[in-house]
Nucleic acid binder design. Structure first.
Lengths: 185, 185
DNA sequence: ATTGCATAGTAAAGAAAGTGACTATGGGCC
DNA sequence: GGCCCATAGTCACTTTCTTTACTATGCAAT
């Protein structure tokens, strides 16, 4: 009931295929909503059946045909209605932090390795977000963009993604420092 | 397959009832893992059936009887095995950010109100975490605690919760500032 | 006297999500 | 020629989660 809205939000800007959306969910939407490609394809079918989306088949020469989805009037109405509802509280699922919580009952060396992995993944996502931010800004400063730009929503969610990843990295450094001190190699 | 580990982590420290766990998941574990009471009761049953937990009935005078769960040897082994697995990537579900992403297609006044609500909820959780941190530290400084304390895991996850909520608040301020500028009341 | 809150749970349907395998085309690499 | 990668999906199965609605007890406030 909520993935739909993330899809409507993504499709409201541009017509896309399931494949395009899967990439977008992997690279940027994952910041605030995660979904697997299978989920997307399933949900897109349902939404088309319910009249929120319309689809058109595009034949391609050099690659497989694709279906491009776009938001219908009904879909736009649903998105507007969603924007008026009070959003559910954020939910987080972070297995690494479960491991850290149980540090005293687990394998410290292994958890330490997981923290390092996690930090590297955050660094890599952070780079992607920063690149994307530069793309949105173009040659404008943040301030010029905020005064006149027309992709405020994506700008704001991107900022949240950036600060989240920065905090992930800072936290990982803290945790590794603590572990180095208490559990020397 | 993963909620169990969060439960094992919570129970490894102290024997608890389902009700206790529900409170803990609401107030602190929610930082890195969310679960409803119904999920917990169901999972606890399964885990007891599989031998990861043992339960004992405690009769109470002034309130309903309760069942206290504790981790068995098998449960400890499962937790150790979990700590050695590579954790799945963090997943986030944040409806507010979906609304913000679709700002241009939604009701800005309503989204603004949601951001304010969200900020207040973060402030309140932040206060709770800071209190909990003071409880863990007692009269020690962070540094003394890190040198000798014995609840390092909870300390670290709490730090992550605190920085997360601080960033939520800072982001909300940013977003409200941007909206005030672009969509004056 | 009743309402509301905290404690302590249970039941069961239905929606959503995750997992793994599979089909197909074309391009580039070695 | 064989292999992997990117594109563009589909299918089936299973697990997990959410939602809604229940049962009970005792305390405190109005």
């Amino acid at each position: 009931m909520a993935l739909r809205n993330a899809l409507l939000a993504a499709l409201a800007d541009r017509e896309s295929s399931g494949y395009d959306l899967a990439k977008k969910f992997r690279s940027s939407v994952a910041n605030f909503w995660t979904a697997t490609p299978q989920q997307l394809y399933r949900e897109l079918e349902k939404m088309e059946a319910e009249g929120l989306l319309s689809a058109r088949l595009v034949k391609q020469d050099k690659r497989p045909d694709k279906r491009l989805f776009s938001v219908t009037g009904e879909g736009r109405a649903a998105l507007l209605a969603f924007s008026r509802r009070s959003p559910k509280p954020t939910t987080v699922r972070d297995e690494l932090l479960v491991q850290v919580e149980a540090l005293a009952h687990g394998d410290v060396a292994s958890v330490r390795a997981s923290i390092v992995e996690h930090r590297e993944a955050s660094r890599s996502r952070l780079k992607g977000y920063e690149q994307r931010l530069r793309d949105i800004l173009g040659d404008r400063t943040d301030d010029e963009f905020l005064a006149t730009g027309n992709r405020l929503g994506p700008y704001l969610t991107l900022q949240r993604g950036i600060s989240f990843e920065r905090e992930n990295i800072a936290w990982a450094e803290l945790a590794l420092g603590v572990l180095a001190r208490r559990y020397p190699l």
